[in-house]
C-alpha cells in the first residue's frame, strides 16, 4: 500500500468551559477524543455524524484553527500539529479548506479577482497581475463560471455561484489535501447536485485528497472512497464506502442509516 498523504493518530481536542454563575463549574468538553485515520493520495475520506459529534473540530484542528490537546497528524510523514505558525505557513497552501457558508466565507469588499488573486501572490505562485488574471480566468472556467465575473463583488452571486467561487479559491492553489466542512449543506437540492458533481470531477481530475465533513449520508455516499462514522468525539466505525453502507457493523451506523427518510418510488405491490 502506498504511504498515506495524511495520517492522523489518536487525535484529541478538548475544550475547557469557563466557570459562570449561570452554567456552573468549569467543564472539560472532549470534542475530539482519540480519532485515528489515514487518507491515501487521491482518496476521499468522509467524516459523518450528527451535530456535536466533533467532526468539524477534527477539520479545524487539522488546519490549526483549534489547538490539539494530544495526538499526532502526519502530512507526508511530517507531524504538523506541533509546528509553529511560521513552520506551518508553507503547508497552508497544500492543505486548504472549503467552508459551509458561501455568504460568510467571501470578503464582501473584495472583487472576485482580488479574493482569488491574493493567495497566489502570498504563496509566490504569481509575480504580476496579468499572470494572476490568466490563472483566475482558467480556474473560473473550470468551475463553470464566466471569466468576466472576476470584476464583480460577492453580493452579485447566488449561493451556488459563491460556493463555486469558494472552490475556485481553494483549487487555484493546487493543494494536496482539501478539507471540505459541510461544503454543500447550505445549498438547495438542485444546486447542491451541480456543486457536488463539480467537486467530484475536480477531485478526480486533479487527484487531490479530500477530507469531506458532512451530516448527509446520501452526499457522503456519492463522494467518498472511505467513510468514518463519528459519535461523541470518537470514530465508531470506519471502512470502505460499500462496507459502511451495505454491511454496517456498528449499531449507531445502522441507526443513522435507518433514520433517513427515503422517497418511495413507484407503486407498492399490495
Amino acid at each position: 500500500m502506498t504511504e498515506p498523504l495524511l495520517r492522523v493518530i489518536d487525535l484529541k481536542t478538548h475544550f475547557r468551559t469557563k466557570a459562570s454563575w449561570m452554567f456552573g463549574e468549569k467543564q472539560l468538553i472532549k470534542a475530539v477524543d482519540g480519532v485515528s485515520f489515514d487518507i491515501a493520495p487521491g482518496e476521499v475520506l468522509s467524516l459523518v455524524g450528527e451535530s456535536g459529534c466533533g467532526k468539524s473540530t477534527v477539520g479545524r484542528t487539522l488546519t490549526h484553527l483549534e489547538q490539539a490537546t494530544s495526538g499526532r497528524a502526519l502530512f507526508e510523514g511530517r507531524d504538523f500539529l506541533v509546528m509553529s505558525p511560521n513552520e506551518f505557513r508553507p503547508l497552508r497552501r497544500e492543505i486548504q479548506m472549503i467552508f459551509q457558508d458561501p455568504f460568510a466565507s467571501l470578503n464582501p469588499r473584495l472583487k472576485i479577482e482580488q479574493t482569488l488573486g491574493e493567495p497566489l501572490f502570498i504563496h509566490g505562485l504569481c509575480k504580476t497581475w496579468d499572470e494572476a488574471r490568466a490563472k483566475i480566468a482558467v480556474m473560473l472556467e473550470t468551475v463553470g463560471m464566466d471569466p468576466l465575473v472576476m470584476k464583480r463583488h460577492p453580493h452579485e452571486f447566488s449561493g451556488g455561484q459563491r460556493q463555486r467561487i469558494g472552490i475556485a479559491r481553494v483549487m487555484i492553489l493546487k493543494p494536496k489535501l482539501v478539507i471540505a466542512d459541510e461544503a454543500v449543506s447550505a445549498l438547495d437540492v438542485s444546486i447542491q447536485a451541480q456543486v457536488l458533481n463539480l467537486l467530484k470531477k475536480l477531485q478526480q481530475d486533479s487527484g487531490v485528497s479530500m477530507l469531506f465533513i458532512s451530516h448527509d449520508l446520501g452526499v457522503v455516499r456519492h463522494i467518498s472512497d472511505q467513510v468514518a462514522v463519528m459519535h461523541e468525539g470518537k470514530i465508531v466505525e470506519i471502512g470502505r464506502k460499500r462496507q459502511i453502507f451495505e454491511a454496517p457493523q456498528h449499531e449507531y451506523t445502522r441507526k443513522l442509516l435507518e433514520s433517513i427518510p427515503r422517497v418511495k418510488i413507484g407503486k407498492e405491490v399490495a
Binding site: 447536485a193 451541480q194 458533481n197 467530484k200 446520501g218 452526499v219 427515503r262
Partner: peptide, 25 residues
C-alpha cells in the same frame, strides 16, 4: 429533476443528474 438531484443512500451513481441553471430571482 428534483428527485434525480438527490444523492441517495441506498445505491451508487457516478454523476447526479443535476438540473442546470438556477431558480430565477
Amino acid at each position: 429533476g428534483l428527485l434525480n438531484s438527490i444523492p441517495v443512500v441506498d445505491s451508487d451513481v457516478d454523476w447526479l443528474e443535476a438540473i442546470p441553471g438556477r431558480v430565477p430571482t
